[in-house]
Design a protein around this nucleic acid. Structure first.
Lengths: 350, 350
DNA sequence: CTCAGAAATCTAAGCGCTTAGATTCTTACT
DNA sequence: AGTAAGAATCTAAGCGCTTAGATTTCTGAG
C-alpha cells in the first residue's frame, strides 16, 4: 500500500504536479474542467495530501500546540491499557481548570482552521518533551509553570509562545486573569452583604495568581477597616493540608465568621472538615473558594466562589497566538480577563 | 528570526548534517565528544528539529489523530473569543463520553510516545475536514458515525483507522463494548434482586449500541419469564423526547415497577419528569440508565446504571492503532470490552 | 610498524509538497 | 490573419531532515 502522492494524481489526471497542487490550494487558478479531472483522479486513488511535505514546503504546519503539566495525567496510568479496571481517582472525575481552558483552545482553533496538537511524546534522552511538541507547530500555548526558563528560551527562538498566567515575560506573551479584583469583590461581598467581621484565610502565596488573590483579600478587608488575618497555609491540590489548616483555625480562641480559601478544592475540603467537627456551614461559619469548578456548584451548600473565565482564557490565548503567527504583533500586553463573583449559599444565608 | 536548522548546528559544531541528525536520533552511533559538541551548538542556537522535515524523510509523523463529532463543540461558539461571557450550557458542564475516551487516548499516546492531534481544520472547499487530519498522522481514531463511508475509504487507503463502536468493518478496526451483556446484567439485577415485574423501556434503536442494549434487556426479561414492553421512543441527548416518553408511560393503565432508560441522560430527565408528576423514585417507580456519567453518580437518588469502560476504550484504541502502524496486525477482532453494573439507589431500596 | 576490521563520519539522494518564473494556450481586438 | 494581454499550465528549485553506502579514522593483533 504505497502512499498516493501528487505524482500519482498528476499522472492519472494528465497534468503536472504543480497543477494538482493548485487544484487543491487555489482552485480558482485552474480551469474548471482540469479541476474536475484532478479531483476525480485524487478521489479515485484515495489521495491524502501529506501534511509533512506541505509543512516543509510552506514553512508552517497549520497546527498549534498546547503544553500542560504531565501530572494532569495521573501517574498510575503508566501501565498497559488492559490493566485499567479501576476507575479514575475522584479528583479527576471533575473537569479541572486545565480541561476547561483546553476546551476554549479547541473551540478557537477550529474557528481559525488550526489543528491542535496535544503535548505528545515522552521526553527522549536529549530532547525535553516540550521541544518535540514545539517542532510540530506554528505556535505554542503553555500553562504557567509548565515551561522551564531554558525551554521557554529555546522554543521562543523558533515560534511564538503564549503563557497562561504567571509572570509577564518579554520572550512570551501572557494571558492574565484579574485574580486580585475577583478576590476583592468576593471579600467585599462577605463584608458588605453578610457583615462578616472576623476572617480566616486559607491558602498559599506560591505563584503570582495566589499572591494576587491575597492582595485582593487584604485590600477589601482594609477598605472595610477589618483586621487582616495571616495566611493559614494550605497547598492547592493537597486536601490534607487544608484539613490541618482547618484544625489550626478551630484551635483559635474564637471561631471566625468566614473562612476564605484560595481555591475551590480547598474550600470543599474545609467544608468537610468543619462538618466533621460538628459545625454547620454557613450557619456557624461561612466558607468561600476560588475558581468556579463544577464540584462547587454541585456541593451542598453551593459554594460561593470567584468564577474564572477558563474557556475564554483558552480562546484568547489562541487569538493572540494566531496574531503572532501572522506577524501581527498586537500592540501591548492584553488586559487581564475579569472574573465574576458567584454567590452560592456557603457564604451565609442572607 | 530565521529558523535554525541542522545546517546551522552542523556548521557551528564543525560536523556534517548527518552527524547532527545521528546525535539526536542515535546518540550511541556518535563519539561522546562529538555528541557534546553538537548538543552544545544546538543548545546555543536554540535548535528545534522540524517535525515536518522529519516526518517527510521518515515517512511517518509520530502522531495519532482523534476525530469526533463537530457538534461536541457547541455551535454558538462560532463567534469571536471576546464575546464569550455566557457560561457553557449545562450539558457541557459534565465530561461526556467523548471526553473520557479522549482522556484514555491521551494517556496511552503519551505512554507510547505518540503526539496526539485533535480533529483540527475546518473543512475546506475540497477536502473534507477529516482528510486534513489524516494527512498529519500515522493512524486515526474515529468515533462511530463520525466518518462517512467515502471518508473512511479514502483515509484507510493511507493510514490505519480504529473506530470506536458501531459496526465492524473490513477496512477499519473497531473497539467494541459489550452493551448487550451490560444491559442484561442490569435488567437481571432489577428482576432478581428487586423483584420488579412490570417494565417500561425508554430509548431508541438508532445505532448498533442501542440495539445491543435492547437485546440485552429482552434477553434478561425473557430469561425471567417477564413480558417485554415495547420501546417508548426517546432520543439520546434530547431531554424533551424523554419527557414525552414519561408522559406516555404515566398515561398507561398501570404504572410499571421500573423504567429502564438506554442512557443516563435520559434516565436523569425521566427522574425529573416523574418527580414533577408527584412520584417518588425509587419508591413509586425505579429508574435506571446506561453509561455511567458523572452526573448520575452525583444525582439523588444515585443512578443505577451500566458503567462503560470509557477510558479503557480510548487506551485500547491506541494500542490497536499502534500495532497496525507498526505492521503488527494483531490477529482477529478484539474482544468487546466489558461493562460493569453500577448499583445506586434509583433501582429500589432493597 | 602494518593492516584488517570496527567505529565514526561524511556524501548525496531522496521524502512529497509549494511556488517563483518560464512557457504555452486562449481570447478579444484591430 | 495577426497580436498582445491574460489565463492556464509547466519546469525546476527548494523546504529540513533521514539514511544507505562511501570514506575516513581509530584500534589492536601480528
Amino acid at each position: 500500500m504505497r502512499k498516493v502522492t501528487v505524482y500519482d494524481v498528476a499522472e492519472l489526471a494528465g497534468v503536472s504536479i504543480a497543477t494538482v497542487s493548485f487544484a487543491f490550494t487555489r482552485p480558482d487558478k485552474v480551469k474548471a474542467e482540469t479541476l474536475r479531472n484532478v479531483m476525480a483522479a485524487a478521489d479515485q486513488l484515495g489521495y491524502v495530501p501529506s501534511a509533512s511535505a506541505r509543512g516543509l514546503a510552506r514553512g508552517r504546519t497549520g497546527a498549534i500546540g498546547i503544553y500542560s503539566y504531565d501530572y494532569l495525567l495521573d501517574p498510575d496510568h503508566d501501565k498497559p491499557a488492559t490493566d485499567t479496571r479501576t476507575p479514575a481517582p475522584d479528583g479527576r472525575l471533575f473537569p479541572l481548570y486545565a480541561d476547561e481552558v483546553q476546551r476554549g483552545v479547541q473551540i478557537e482553533c477550529r474557528r481559525r482552521g488550526y489543528a491542535l496538537m496535544l503535548g505528545g511524546n515522552r521526553a527522549s534522552d536529549h530532547l525535553p518533551h516540550v521541544i518535540e511538541v514545539a517542532g510540530r507547530v506554528d505556535g505554542l500555548i503553555a500553562f504557567a509553570g509548565a515551561l522551564t526558563d531554558g525551554a521557554r528560551r529555546q522554543v521562543t527562538a523558533r515560534i511564538p509562545v503564549v503563557e497562561l498566567g504567571g509572570l509577564e515575560r518579554d520572550d512570551a506573551r501572557t494571558v492574565l486573569v484579574d485574580n486580585e479584583s475577583g478576590m476583592f469583590d468576593l471579600a467585599r461581598h462577605l463584608v458588605e452583604q453578610h457583615g462578616h467581621q472576623r476572617f480566616a484565610y486559607v491558602g498559599e502565596l506560591g505563584t503570582e495568581e495566589f499572591k494576587a488573590r491575597r492582595r485582593g483579600f487584604e485590600r477589601a478587608l482594609g477598605a472595610g477597616g477589618i483586621t487582616v488575618p495571616d495566611v493559614v497555609p494550605a497547598h492547592a491540590g493537597d486536601d490534607a493540608s487544608t484539613l490541618r489548616a482547618v484544625a489550626e483555625i478551630l484551635a483559635l480562641p474564637q471561631l471566625p465568621d468566614a473562612i476564605v480559601c484560595d481555591t475551590d478544592q480547598s474550600a470543599l475540603a474545609a467544608i468537610v472538615a468543619l462538618r466533621t467537627a460538628g459545625l454547620r456551614v454557613p450557619d456557624d461559619v461561612a466558607v468561600t473558594g476560588f475558581d468556579g469548578i463544577l464540584a462547587g456548584r454541585l456541593a451542598t451548600p453551593v459554594l460561593t466562589t470567584v468564577l474564572q473565565p477558563m474557556e475564554q482564557v483558552g480562546r484568547v490565548a489562541v487569538e493572540i497566538l494566531a496574531g503572532a503567527i501572522d506577524g501581527r504583533d498586537d500592540a501591548g500586553p492584553a488586559l487581564p480577563l475579569t472574573c465574576s463573583l458567584f454567590v452560592g449559599s456557603s457564604c451565609g444565608t442572607h
